[in-house]
Design a protein around this nucleic acid. Structure first.
Lengths: 204, 204
DNA sequence: ACAGGAAGAGAACGTACGTTCTCCGTTCAC
DNA sequence: GTGAACGGAGAACGTACGTTCTCTTCCTGT
């Protein structure tokens, strides 16, 4: 299922003036924005077509169905979220600061006008019950985040129970910030994370 | 907007064999289950009508539109969630245990087969962008939870920063448990809450 | 008994949307 | 220059769904 994008991307060739993968990426980026802003089910193929500046024929030449676009958007979200988070984490120095950098990344994200909550939580809420693929992708994304935090926590020398605690804080900050419409939760979660990290490090 | 239910409820009268409010409550309870299990947009009025054993005419006699049913379901969810939480909290003794009882309530909830995440987070994700009423109701629900935790934290003598931290933990546990499909997050959040509570109480 | 009205079942209507098809203009190879 | 392939615009099709309408049945009050 997730290999479709790579298969098609490997068949890229010139079609006169634009690389096929660029059309795909423009469609996916546009769909990501629209789905984030209005919800997946609220955005029709015609609206996406207009916003992306692509003909319906090209849309369906690139993707066999709307659900395949949704899955491509989830891949896109996972990639940009993971890369953005890691970039912020890498800028921090000591292992303890790298754990806290997670919440700095959240703070910057929450302040963006386009922030409307975690796209995986949202897509899971909207489609998880009727689309096993969406539910499974959301689960994998969250699992990979858990593993990422666990790696950072391990590098800080923390016991195993710390990482799930910090991950839960991060998840809670995302939903709290989205629904409340403020970015306060990032700072509150960061302060809680400091307490949990210090307690875990001294207990070890 | 939120007073519609009360207005109609006050006009209750006998219609031969069943109180009108009982029909309303059956519709709302059925809608709550279906919306929770499959998502709001995935459940049509006909499916709701069949599941509730009510004619379409009666459905539209009780509610002017689907969106009014959604709002009634949100009121119903808020009431049962708040009452269930408070019942668990009241069973605990000391103020510190009452704060931790929040996570015991979550643990019991997560273990239910019907658990599919917080209904307010889900409805916000699904409809918040296109329905200001839904977004606002979700915000109010989360705000009331924040105030509830703040009251419990105040009774425990904790400083003001503790309550938002515990609320974020609770929110994160809900989404983590929903997407992961396990109930582990409740215990992990509870242990984190213990650390945060003790740190806040000794720092005070 | 009979007129009148309430209520159920489901047909009907309008709309939205995912997907496919058709038509027409453009381009490119020869 | 000409024909054939390609691509864009949007019409068309089938389906689903929210909402309303119609018909029939059954109960009620006198």
């Amino acid at each position: 299922m997730f290999s479709i994008v790579e298969n098609v991307r490997s068949q890229c060739k010139y079609n006169g003036w634009m690389h096929i993968s660029e059309v795909r990426e423009r469609i996916v980026a546009t769909a990501d924005e629209l789905y984030n802003a209005k919800g997946i089910q609220a955005v029709g193929m015609d609206e996406l077509r207009t916003a992306a500046g692509v003909s319906l024929k090209k849309l369906y030449a690139e993707f066999p169905s709307k659900s395949s676009i949704v899955m491509a958007v989830l891949e896109h979200r996972h990639k940009s979220w993971t890369e953005g988070l890691d970039a912020t984490v890498q800028q921090a120095g000591a292992p303890r600061e790298r754990l806290l950098a997670i919440f700095d990344y959240l703070a910057g994200w929450f302040c963006q006008d386009s922030f409307r909550g975690c796209g995986f939580i949202n897509s899971f809420a909207e489609l998880g019950a009727i689309s096993p693929d969406v539910a499974e992708y959301a689960r994998q994304h969250k699992e990979s985040f858990q593993e990422y935090v666990a790696r950072l926590a391990g590098e800080a020398g923390a016991p195993g129970f710390l990482a799930p605690q910090l991950a839960i804080l991060a998840e809670g900050a995302q939903t709290t910030a989205a629904i409340a419409g403020t970015s306060d939760a990032a700072g509150q979660a960061r302060q809680a994370a400091e307490v949990l990290i210090d307690a875990a490090l001294t207990a070890d």
